[in-house]
Simulated assay, not measured.
Amino acid sequence: MLMYGFEPRSPIAVETWTIKFQKVADFLHDMQEMLRIARENVQSAQDRDRHYANMKRSPRDFQVGDWVYLKILKDSSVMRTGKHYKLSPRYRGSFKILKKIGSLAYQLELPKKSQVHLVFHVSRLKKSLREGEHLGYGDQLDLLDESSGVSRLEPEKILDTRTK
């Protein structure tokens, strides 16, 4: 419509007209059949995609007052505890849920100095089995120096060294 300035004729609209020639009627019938097959193929592809996407999903529902672990994203510079993502912990916490926002977001009770937004998607949360249990490493989210962006963690003791 934008290109020509009028509503283009579709096979569905043409179907309502009176058809004088048998070849035109056959052509429109074939066109309708192709459209029906195309709709069925699109629907089956959507169903297949939905099936495979839902295989990886698990229903998660938390209540206000539950304790959850927070998943740390790979490219998060604020919540990362080390230089390399592979060596960083996958989850932090546990944190208390303060409020449910919609069906997929929750507001967490984070430390006051944390540099992160308080609301997280349900996919980033994992239920803590015990109330207030901490994972034992980096339970606070403000582990980076605000001015330089470098981790403030320091080793407690060097156990061994070697030279090549």
Rank of each mutant, 00 (worst) to 15 (best):
P8W: 06
P8L: 05
R9G: 00
R9A: 04
R9D: 11
S10V: 09
S10K: 11
V14M: 13
V14L: 15
E15M: 11
T16E: 12
T18A: 04
T18F: 06
I19P: 00
I19L: 10
F21R: 14
F21Q: 15
F21H: 15
Q22Y: 03
Q22M: 04
V24Y: 07
V24A: 10
A25K: 14
D26I: 02
D26S: 12
L28P: 01
L28I: 07
H29A: 09
H29V: 06
D30P: 01
D30K: 10
M31P: 01
M31Y: 13
Q32A: 14
M34F: 04
L35C: 01
A38W: 01
E40M: 12
E40A: 14
V42A: 14
V42W: 06
Q43C: 08
A45G: 03
Q46H: 12
D47S: 09
D49A: 10
D49Y: 11
D49R: 04
R50G: 02
H51V: 06
Y52E: 04
Y52R: 06
N54F: 11
N54I: 01
M55A: 10
K56T: 10
K56Y: 14
P59V: 12
R60F: 10
R60V: 13
V64S: 02
V64W: 06
D66C: 09
W67C: 04
V68K: 02
Y69I: 05
Y69C: 09
L73I: 03
L73Y: 07
K74G: 04
S76A: 09
S77C: 02
S77N: 13
V78A: 15
M79D: 05
M79L: 13
G82P: 00
G82L: 12
H84L: 15
H84A: 11
H84I: 07
Y85F: 15
K86G: 14
S88M: 12
S88I: 03
P89D: 05
R90T: 09
Y91T: 01
Y91R: 09
G93E: 04
S94H: 04
I97F: 01
K100C: 02
S103I: 05
S103E: 09
S103W: 00
L104R: 05
Y106A: 05
Y106P: 06
Y106M: 09
L108P: 03
L110E: 03
K112A: 09
S114C: 08
Q115H: 10
H117D: 13
H117N: 13
H117A: 08
L118Q: 15
V119G: 02
F120L: 00
H121L: 08
H121K: 12
V122C: 14
V122L: 09
R124C: 09
L125I: 05
L125M: 07
L125N: 06
L125E: 08
L125A: 07
K126D: 14
K127V: 03
S128M: 06
S128D: 03
S128L: 03
L129H: 11
L129M: 07
R130W: 05
E133A: 13
E133W: 02
D142Y: 04
D142S: 08
L143K: 07
D145L: 00
S148F: 02
S148T: 15
V150M: 10
S151E: 00
L153V: 10
